[in-house]
Amino acid sequence: MTNSVARAGMTKPGKRERLADAAAKVFHEQGVEKTTIADIARAADVPVGNVYYYFKTKDQLVQAAIGAHERTGQEIIAALEQVGTPAERLKALVRGWVEQRELASRFGCAAGTLATELDKRADGLDQELAGVMRAFLDWIETQFTAMGRADARELAVALLASYQGISLLANTFRDPAMMEAEGHRLERWIDSLV
């Protein structure tokens, strides 16, 4: 997912939001286990001592990162809703994913890699992130439904699975061109469904 367009023109976020966004970014780049609270404070340009005012534990920062993913997803969906037809919205979504190909080839999908990491824990945060991803999947399904597709849920799963899969492959091979090629294929696929 990309949020560059969605956040354009917004005022500077407060410390809590900056910390949540920084946590999402640093967890994506380093993983939860390797990330320290100092790493997040540095990325947010906030003194380390101030972090504890907002978040007492690293798990609270993980939860805040999930909230940042949810906020970003909502912003992306709001921006995509401004695009013409459902098929055009889906293709714009794919183009947004492709725009992030360099980042994905270095670190994978931010939400997908976090989901994989949280799945190994028993604290329920994996289910919070699943809810965020489910909302995005539901939005994709809504677009296919609006295109008149009776198999909208299957198509939504296929589209999101294609993105997750190509993110993993682009990351594994450190090859952003793989994601670009898959993006073109997905756009043609969406056109074929209209």
Rank of each mutant, 00 (worst) to 15 (best):
K91M: 11
R185Y: 13
L169M: 11
E180W: 10
R42W: 06
T85C: 10
D175C: 11
T36R: 05
G165F: 08
P13R: 06
L129F: 01
V157K: 13
Q143R: 14
V51A: 03
R89M: 09
A104C: 10
V94G: 05
K25H: 11
R42P: 08
A23Y: 09
E88C: 05
I166N: 03
A158E: 14
A115K: 15
T116E: 13
A23Q: 05
A170V: 01
L168W: 15
A65E: 07
Q164H: 13
A158Y: 15
W97R: 15
D21W: 14
M179Y: 01
T116L: 08
R174L: 04
V26Q: 00
M133P: 12
T113K: 14
V132E: 01
H69S: 00
Y52V: 04
L155S: 05
T142N: 13
K15M: 13
Y54E: 08
R134I: 00
A6H: 03
S105K: 08
M1Q: 05
G49F: 07
D151P: 00
H184T: 08
W139Y: 11
E17R: 14
G148R: 02
W189D: 06
D39T: 08
A161M: 06
A79Y: 01
A43M: 07
D59R: 15
R18F: 03
I37H: 05
A104T: 10
D138E: 13
V26W: 01
S4V: 10
S167N: 13
D191C: 09
A24R: 03
L186R: 05
G67Y: 13
A104R: 04
M178K: 12
L19P: 02
R18E: 00
A177P: 07
D151F: 06
L129M: 03
Y163N: 06
L61Y: 06
Q82A: 14
T72N: 12
M133A: 06
R16T: 08
A38K: 15
L137Q: 11
D45V: 09
L114Q: 01
G131K: 08
A130T: 09
E141L: 04
A170N: 04
R42D: 12
T57V: 09
A146G: 11
K58V: 12
V194M: 13
A79M: 10
